[in-house]
Every structure is written in structure tokens, then in C-alpha cells.
């Protein structure tokens, strides 16, 4: 995509993209993590990025897929799959045929089971190493990629992996660029035939909209009812919050210090 910047041959990158689902309205969209993956690939120096999707082509999914094209792509390869199909064989075959150096995927799909297994199964089947939860690809040199993996609390871990490899990105990766209407409208969806395998198991599992999980009560293993009552009541009285007025700065600081320690944010 950016031929002026690559210095040691181009790097073939395939990004697996899926049709996302807006959490509030359920409308189809670019899946957030996949779009971040596309952004990550798009900013890689000397990368030749291909978009690959396995699924159905209908009105809803087309708009979402065109969303990826709007990030500045001419075409997207689409492996036609019926609803409820296991897309693993189709993707594995396509990747084997194309032989990219790096495959980028989101961690989990926003529709269907969304188990996040697909990249692992692909890696197992292709025999490639897999690194999950990427924040950035720092460098690719001589077939070895230096990656930055995102850890909780904004921490990062640096890894080095031999290519070809599969990497997944999560919400810590850079935010995707805006999808522009013009390129999205112009881009091609190259529909290709692919082997189809039904996902028999998934069809048997009843699915329903996620229930709100019960909030766990603070378990108090107190000796007496009085203590248990006190512990239960302590939560309720916390609603208003504690206000320290007419205290010296030192006393105020002490109270804050205590809270910070309790919460364990001071390192």
C-alpha cells in the first residue's frame, strides 16, 4: 500500500475481518478489534495488506465489509459461506494458498459464538506461532517481527516472533482510522468459492440475549450476626461519600493516602 517506504522487500499481510455488531443497536459495523487490526497492518512499513472475510454476503454484511474498504483498500476477498458455517476450513485453505507472512485478526468476533478460538485453530492447523493481544508491531526484519503485547493496566511486553505468524489485536491497539464513504463505495468485494463445513454443535446450543449477571455481594465470614449486619450495612452508607471539611491539608492527605493504599494503586 505504501510502496515508497519499504526497504527490504514487501511484507505480505492478511487481515481477517469479520462483520461486527454494535453493542447497543446491534447494527452491522466494522468489528472494533478487526478494524484495529486493519489499522495496525495499514501502518506497517512496506506491508502489502489483503483483507479476507469468510461469511455471507448480504445487505447487512456488505455495509460492514465496505466499512473496511473505506479505510483505503481497493478490494476485499470474500469467501462465501452460508450462515452457521464453520469458517475454519475455508480460511485455512485460503491462507495456505496465499501464503502471507503475517496474519492479523481481532481477538474475538462480535457475533456468533465469539469464542476467540479461530486464530488459535488456524495457527494450529497451519503450524504457525500465534501471539495474542497485540498493541503494536514495532518492526519486521529478516523474517522476525518485534511485537508489543498489551497487558492489563496499560502495561506492555515486547516479544519477538518468527514469521509466518498469526497475531491478534485487542482494544489496546491503535484506534482505526475513519472509514471514508468514497473508497468504501468504490471498493470491490471479490467473492470466491470456498469449502463449506457446517457448525453442527453451535446450532444445537440455545442462545438468548445476555442476562445481566448478578453482582456478587461482599462475602462476610463474620462470627456474629452483628458483624455481618455491619458489613452489609457498610456498603449502603457509602452512597453519599465521606466529606472532610475543616481539616488540615495533612489530615486530608492522610485520608486520601489511606484510600489509595486500600485500593492498591500506589506502587
Amino acid at each position: 500500500m505504501q510502496p515508497d517506504t519499504h526497504h527490504e522487500g514487501s511484507l505480505a499481510v492478511t487481515v481477517l475481518v469479520s462483520v461486527g455488531r454494535h453493542p447497543l443497536t446491534g447494527r452491522g459495523r466494522r468489528a472494533d478489534q478487526d478494524a484495529r487490526g486493519v489499522e495496525l497492518a495499514r501502518t506497517l512499513r512496506g506491508a502489502e495488506v489483503e483483507l479476507l472475510h469468510a461469511g455471507r454476503l448480504d445487505e447487512g454484511s456488505e455495509a460492514a465489509l465496505r466499512g473496511y474498504l473505506g479505510m483505503g483498500f481497493d478490494a476485499l476477498s470474500l469467501l462465501e459461506q452460508p450462515a452457521g458455517a464453520d469458517v475454519l476450513p475455508a480460511l485455512a485453505e485460503a491462507l495456505e494458498a496465499a501464503g502471507p507472512q503475517l496474519v492479523v485478526a481481532g481477538e474475538r468476533a462480535e457475533q456468533g459464538e465469539g469464542s476467540g478460538l479461530l486464530p488459535y485453530l488456524l495457527a494450529e492447523r497451519l503450524g504457525w506461532p500465534l501471539v495474542s493481544g497485540l498493541a503494536a508491531v514495532e518492526d519486521v526484519e529478516h523474517g522476525v517481527a518485534t511485537l508489543l503485547q498489551a497487558l492489563p493496566r496499560g502495561q506492555r511486553r515486547r516479544l519477538r516472533v518468527r514469521l509466518p505468524a498469526i497475531v491478534t489485536v485487542d482494544a489496546a491497539a491503535p484506534a482505526p482510522r475513519q472509514s471514508a464513504y468514497g473508497p468504501a463505495r468504490r471498493g470491490r468485494l471479490d467473492v470466491q468459492a470456498a469449502p463449506v463445513m457446517d457448525d453442527v454443535d453451535l446450532a444445537q446450543w440455545p442462545a438468548q440475549p445476555a442476562r445481566k449477571r448478578p453482582k456478587r455481594l461482599k462475602i462476610v465470614k463474620a462470627a456474629s450476626a452483628r458483624d455481618r449486619f455491619k458489613a452489609a450495612a457498610a456498603k449502603a452508607e457509602g452512597g453519599g461519600g465521606q466529606v472532610l471539611s475543616d481539616v488540615t491539608p495533612e489530615e486530608g492527605a492522610e485520608a486520601i493516602f489511606k484510600l489509595l493504599k486500600e485500593e492498591g494503586v500506589l506502587r
Binding site: R108, A109, E110, Q111, E113, G114, W205, Q208, A210
Partner: peptide, 12 residues
């Protein structure tokens, strides 16, 4: 099990 980015519950 939660699925579909936390919007579905699968019984299995």
C-alpha cells in the same frame, strides 16, 4: 457462556 462480545448467552 457469554458470546458475541458479551451480548449473547449460550446454554451448552
Amino acid at each position: 457462556a457469554r458470546g458475541a462480545a458479551g451480548t449473547l448467552d449460550f446454554q451448552r
